[in-house]
Design a protein around this nucleic acid. Structure first.
Length: 438
RNA sequence: UCCGCGCUAGCUCAAUGGUAGAGCAAACGGCUGUUAACCGUUAGGUUCUUGGUUCAAAUCCGAGGCGCGGAGCCA
């Protein structure tokens, strides 16, 4: 009776004969021994073919294997003599080849990122992308679990929208039966409608932005988690963000040890993060930034009223171990739906969460403007077509209340937790400006 | 939209106006319980395209294409 299993479950089969199915990841061979590294999607195991243990046919089958050849392989599971891992001792007839692969484009040696993304469909099989996308999957699971257990309703917003959420320059147009529709930039406005029906909702889906950004922090298609809650102020928002972030950090540290190791992530930096996160008023950020700029030898002053550039965020987050809530941004630099601060006309009840180690903004959120007149005024100020927002204004006409939420960029969160430079590897097939293949 | 860098063997790169080369991959051989194994041999080129300067261009200049990084904007 043949026992089949997968590499992730191999520890339960020591001294037993099992059959694995997978691909050859790498090979080392000599006159008497072949070391076959077999990958099956769940992990990698080393199979040993010894010339004294197998017949000629099995030996030459092992010899013929090339990188990414697909096969069934049967052998006895044993402990590695030197390492803390398992291996497979192959016997006669233990190698059953499905296909000998020729000229696999990705070798175990160096490649440039341009080349690798051209071959993204194959590069996914390599160790680091494999680990990174497993972390993404765990982060998604952690976030869904967190909100589910906290009583949030999963609320899906539409992908086709009649209007811009934050300005019209960065929208993708779609021909919608002769009319122009847009791909959504954010599910937030619809999330607000959901919050008025269910109190606590969370939107999770892809969003599209035609920003011509060519940086390692931008994609034209990315996934956002957007909770929205009725009767919810800025302080409630801080508390939700930090609780959720801590939950995800702990989940990933608990479930992704192996993946973090493959990515050579220094996990001590994540382990240092403690509640509460840093609360920093925009006014104080301006002061701190100017001190940091002075220290860095930058003579130019950061002036009150401006938005922080990426270098500013980097400087600020590198100076702290914990994430930073940067709050009360000037009204002028925030979206039309942001609530004004009743105690300080200049600023809004807005917050960005900046991740440490220079990762910068991964969350943007705040309290929403709940006064109909103010929202109309802001729509006009931002040159947006009011008729497209009539339904949104209804939310202010019928039972308005202080409410709020935030938008979390999934890929940016994953990049930070995994400690990778670019967010492009944090999604299976990244979409960037002028890059939609494969 | 703007700024910077790059494009040479299948891949990663070198050659600083004068005979295009190395490592890896491939093929063949050797050696080893090997870990991106190692050693030897062989093969591998329209130097992104295009126009120009020059006795001579991978190299200098112009135009274009593509890629990467960044600014702005944002998650």
């Amino acid at each position: 009776m043949k026992t089949t299993t997968t590499i992730d479950k191999i520890a339960g089969f020591v001294d037993r004969e099992v059959t694995l199915s997978g691909w050859l990841y790498n090979k080392r061979e000599s006159k008497k021994l072949q070391f076959l590294q077999i990958r099956d999607g769940t992990g990698i195991i080393q199979a040993i073919v010894s010339i004294k243990d197998v017949d000629e046919e099995t030996w030459s089958a092992g010899q013929s294997l090339t990188q990414e050849s697909s096969l069934y392989i049967t052998g006895t599971v044993s402990k590695h003599p030197k390492r803390d891992e398992y291996e497979l001792q192959v016997k006669s007839g233990g190698i059953n080849i499905i296909q000998v692969t020729e000229d696999y484009p990705i070798t175990p040696k160096d490649h440039g990122t341009g080349y690798l993304f051209e071959h993204r469909h194959l590069w996914l099989r390599s160790q680091k992308p494999w680990a990174l996308l497993r972390i993404r999957s765990e982060v998604i699971q952690a976030i869904r679990t967190f909100f589910y257990e906290d009583g949030y309703l999963a609320f899906d917003s539409p992908m086709f929208t009649p209007s811009a959420v934050e300005g019209t320059t960065t929208l993708f147009n779609v021909d919608y039966f002769g009319e122009t529709a847009f791909l959504t930039q954010s599910g937030q406005l619809y999330g607000e409608a959901g919050a008025m029906a269910h109190r606590k909702i969370v939107v999770f889906g892809p969003t599209f932005r035609a920003e011509k950004s060519k940086t390692r922090r931008h994609l034209t298609e990315f996934w956002m988690i957007e909770p929205e809650v009725a009767f919810f102020d800025l302080e409630d928002n801080f508390e939700l963000m930090e609780r959720m972030t801590m939950y995800v950090i702990e989940w990933v540290l608990d479930k992704c040890r192996k993946e973090l190791e493959i990515l050579e992530r220094d996990t001590s930096l994540l382990e240092k993060i403690k509640l509460p996160f840093i609360r920093m008023h925009y006014d104080d950020a301006v002061k701190e930034l100017n001190e940091l700029r002075k220290k860095a030898g930058i003579n130019e002053e950061f002036e009150w009223g401006g938005d922080l550039g990426s270098p500013d965020e980097t400087m600020l987050t590198e100076a702290h171990e914990n994430p930073i809530f940067l709050h009360h941004f000037p009204r002028e630099i925030k979206a039309f739906y942001m609530a004004p601060d009743p105690d300080d006309e200049r600023v809004s009840l807005s917050v960005d969460m900046l991740a440490p180690e220079g990762y910068g903004e991964i969350i943007g959120g705040g309290q929403r403007a709940d006064d109909e007149k103010y929202v109309i005024e802001q729509i006009k100020k931002h040159d947006l077509p009011q008729e497209a927002f009539e339904w949104f204004l209804d939310l202010r006409r019928y039972g308005t209340n202080p409410h709020g939420g935030f938008g979390l960029g999934l890929e940016r969160l994953v990049a930070w937790l995994a400690g990778v430079q670019s967010i492009r590897g944090c999604i299976p097939f990244p979409r960037t400006i002028e890059k939609v293949y494969p």
